[in-house]
Design a protein around this nucleic acid. Structure first.
Lengths: 182, 182
DNA sequence: GTCTATATCAAGATAGAC
DNA sequence: GTCTATCTTGATATAGAC
């Protein structure tokens, strides 16, 4: 199998793993469940990811890469300006519809298995923070706005958000309005 | 054993369970680990909580009760006024030092085991939201502030917060300042 | 590269002694 | 009420066929 095909197989497996976490909870992320969802056998899965930890690490990397892609996409169709960075982060975190939360599922699985697997996530977030601070906005206010957007994402991921429908939309609008005041 | 003593034994076990989640991650919350931490045997544990699911349910209930106690405590030493409710929620969620996060550990363990165990949490949060809306503040702004405080708590729980030390304190101050503008 | 078969181990849960 | 001993299941991982 060539490079491209192998990458696609790994991608399929990682997507399957995210789906399992979303559907059944992080503790049901077993190699067998992932293999079944991806339509391969356990042996085939182990060929691509030699251990469960390797799978989780790859899930975390994929999650970080996915964030960056989403962030770039949001940046691309926002007007230039001081607050573009922060608005892009709000949109990247909270704009997708409620059901589509694979963006962050990996963090649950990783934390459940071994808390140290999230270190790359924290490091990436520190870099993001530095970039935002450098963009010249009020750091504390910007932090609050981004925290709120991420808080919404995490609460939904944990199935604990009380904000639905209209209310959720109004909160997002408020976040974007506040971004302009930073 | 009388009623009081039995309740105390259950409390000890629940505290031990929280400690295990914090220290080793949700997937290492095993009956054996909890029993060891609580200083009893697996058999003894099973007497108090007949199944792992029963233990997790009790952890969730304890977490909700703990929030309410913290919230009441913060309310008690905040001056009366329109923004007291929201400030109390900010303090209750985010004021404790980084290390003390048993307040929310249960949610990780519950979500990891079975996402439907968090339903009581979402329900309680809906009640909180209704109470805050009734207090007369700007609903969207209040939601943003509370989301930011909870976002900070959850990120720290997931080991992914980039905000440390001074910066964390400034964010909290900003949240309380913003609460007055609702 | 993906499969089947299997070894190994740990988890949740039960039974019954004390 | 708490213990020890044990059953059953299911998870990770290995080995080797195809």
């Amino acid at each position: 199998m060539d490079e491209v095909a192998r990458r696609s197989s790994r991608e399929d497996i990682l997507k399957a793993a995210e789906a399992v976490v979303i559907a059944k909870g992080a503790s049901h992320l077993t190699l067998e469940a992932v293999a079944k969802k991806a339509g391969i056998s356990k042996g085939g899965l182990i060929y691509s990811f030699p251990s469960k930890e390797a799978l989780l690490q790859a899930m975390v990397e994929r999650m970080i890469a996915g964030w960056q892609v989403r962030h770039e996409a949001e940046m691309a169709h926002l007007p230039e300006g001081r607050t573009r960075e922060i608005k892009a982060r709000v949109m990247a975190a909270a704009s997708p519809p409620l059901g589509k939360k694979p963006i962050a599922a990996a963090i649950l699985a990783a934390v459940a298995h071994d808390p140290k697997l999230v270190i790359p996530i924290r490091d990436e977030r520190k870099r993001m923070l530095a970039r935002m601070t450098a963009s010249g906005v009020n750091t504390e206010r910007a932090a609050v706005i981004v925290l709120a957007a991420e808080g919404l994402l995490l609460l939904e991921l944990l199935g604990s958000s009380p904000y639905e429908g209209e209310m959720r939309g109004r909160i997002l609008s408020e976040l974007l309005r506040m971004a302009d005041l930073c």
